[in-house]
Design a protein around this nucleic acid. Structure first.
Lengths: 210, 210
DNA sequence: ATTATTTTTAATCAAATGATTAAAATATTT
DNA sequence: AAATATTTTAATCATTTGATTAAAAATAAT
């Protein structure tokens, strides 16, 4: 299992092929509904190879899950800790960046939140997500704005929840919303594009609401 | 399988016992992760009885799923079609009613949305959810308010999305948010209680935002 | 070229899981 | 009370599924 040749070209390693197939399958169907055989077939490798490289379905899952969470956290950190941008600008960045991101990976939010629900302590204690958010420039700027009377509701969690809610929830409820609105995928995505501009406007309006 | 005695006392029928156990298990873990044996054990019945009453795991699931969706839709219909209340009042009712509801059944939203995602057409085409929402008093009042210039954004789906997002998303992300905020269940629920009053205020603020 | 090491495969195992069967227990009808 | 119908159980099947093994193929080292 040693690595002799360094990742040839663009990750066509066997290990990488398995991880890619596993990522797609887990993100789409979750841990329980995913069969290791499906992963192997999709990756075009023998089933035994999956266990040769990752020991077990669970270990493979942990690898994918960790990488997914880590990538999400990194994105979050990037925006929330950008020292140069104002709070308002950060709201715009979150809306724009995350809407683009989720359009590309529409299964990731519900996957993450479902699996965290199954194993919250285990997964979250490995990543310093609390410190990341609570010590962020974003939170400090929020406190400032509250102190200066620019924001009515003092609890920063409500502010973060509202932002994430408006950005993420429509994707989680996408099939339901498309059913209600009689929309196809393209129309839905157009609606989400609208929201890049709208959400910052709405969030600003809530800041002063009372 | 005929019903001889009418539901004795409070639904202690075998069929009802199985459904209760199945409801809890499916809501908590989803279809794929639920074992029929777990349902049988929880219901304190022989595994074969489950198949005797419901033919298969899938049929039992469909029963539970349909009832869950139907109950959700009925609740929705009740509020959205109340002819006596204003649009603002309906927003208050949705916030209050759904927050209470989801605190009692915190697994239902992510369960519904996950399973709909797995089988969107199949599940949604059985229930007239589109007609319910599009023909509702809620939607008519929204159109009026737009016509009278009381609401900036004309698309009623954005309005509905925003309301549902602010109400439902925090519950879906509950374990993550508790991790971020270092909250226990009680503290989280208190935060949700706050939102009963706050969400209507925020929604009103977004109506006039531009 | 030969040997050793790593990677891949086909075949198979063992446990889990949804479902069935035939008989026993219970309830209902006559 | 006897006959009939319904409900419940224990035992068992058949498949699916995660995992292993032993051998073959490919690659690297000597």
């Amino acid at each position: 299992m040693a690595k002799k040749k360094e990742a040839k070209a663009l990750d066509t390693t066997t290990e990488e092929k398995i991880k890619s197939a596993a990522r797609v399958a887990f993100h789409k169907k979750g841990y329980a509904a995913t069969r290791t055989r499906d992963i192997a077939e999709e990756a075009d490798i023998n089933l035994a190879l999956l266990n040769y490289y990752f020991r077990s379905k669970e270990k493979l899952f942990e690898t994918i899950m960790f990488e997914t969470l880590f990538s999400f956290m990194q994105n979050m950190a990037m925006v929330l800790n950008d020292e140069k941008s104002t709070l308002e600008k950060k709201v715009e960045l979150v809306a724009e960046k995350y809407i683009d991101l989720i359009i590309k990976e529409p299964n990731v939010p519900i996957f993450m939140l479902s699996e965290i629900r199954n194993n919250a302590e285990g997964l979250l204690e490995k990543l310093p997500i609390k410190q990341l958010v609570m010590n962020s420039s974003f939170f400090k700027q929020h406190q400032d704005a509250v102190a200066k009377g620019k924001i009515t509701e003092p609890n920063p969690l409500h502010f973060l929840m509202n932002l994430l809610s408006l950005v993420v929830f429509p994707f989680i409820a996408q099939p339901l919303l498309q059913g209600i609105g009689g929309m196809n995928n393209k129309q839905f995505n157009e609606l989400m594009q609208d929201r890049k501009k709208l959400i910052p406007v709405w969030i600003k309006a809530t800041m002063k609401a009372k």
